[in-house]
């Protein structure tokens, strides 16, 4: 049972961190399937909690070969771009989204699509909460479609990435989700 988002936002940062529900490798290996029938409107997804540091930002810049100095050069960030610190990458946030949807739909569902906006500057020291909530569900072509509201909030409740997503879960008595994924015709 996940901690509800509203409850998390009433906690101290260290308490939020202790409620991190990011799975480890074994958790992902052994995860059971969530079926369409298991999901109800208003359900919340597990909360992934992050505490980005300058090292995390440097590591991401290096991994994707993003040389933008606002992410690793504090002097440049403060004095050239007048940012409050080095900034957490939008590219990292938007890469967490498909990971988050993948993890929830594993092993046989499909993290089909998401759209989101980048708002607020995130900096080392922030506690970040990746969250999702079921807004509606429907069946089509023997697949279960789940509409989600998603986002990444700071410990202060500032929404830095408001968005929506559509994922596909198998029906308990339905066929496998096609792979590669083929969306149903409108």
């Amino acid at each position: 049972m996940t901690t509800m988002l509203d409850d998390l936002l009433n906690m101290e940062p260290e308490e939020i961190w202790r409620r991190n529900e990011r799975p480890d490798a074994d958790g992902l290996r052994d995860k059971g399937q969530i079926y369409y029938e298991d999901v109800n409107e208003g359900d919340e997804l597990p909360k992934y909690i992050y505490k980005p540091t300058p090292t995390h930002l440097f590591r991401w810049s290096a991994a994707i070969e993003n040389f933008h100095r606002i992410h690793y050069d504090l002097d440049f960030g403060l004095n050239h771009d007048r940012n409050p610190s080095i900034l957490v990458h939008g590219s990292w946030k938007q890469s967490v989204v498909p990971q988050y949807l993948k993890d929830w739909t594993l092993p046989n569902g499909w993290p089909w699509k998401a759209r989101f906006e980048h708002r607020a500057m995130l900096v080392p020291g922030d506690i970040l909460i990746m969250w999702g909530r079921v807004t509606s569900k429907y069946e089509k072509s023997q697949m279960g479609f789940i509409e989600l509201e998603i986002g990444m909030k700071t410990q202060d409740g500032i929404e830095s990435m408001p968005g929506t997503a559509t994922v596909v879960l198998p029906l308990k008595d339905g066929p496998p989700i096609p792979y590669p994924f083929v969306p149903p015709a409108d």
């Binding site: 939008g90 938007q94 989204v97 498909p98 499909w110 993290p111 089909w112 699509k113 998401a114 759209r115 989101f116 906006e117 980048h118 968005g163 792979y179 590669p180 994924f181």
Partner: peptide, 11 residues
């Protein structure tokens, strides 16, 4: 200004 991003995943 950034106005948003979308991703669709197929394989």
């Amino acid at each position: 200004l950034n106005a948003g991003n979308e991703i669709e995943v197929y394989a």
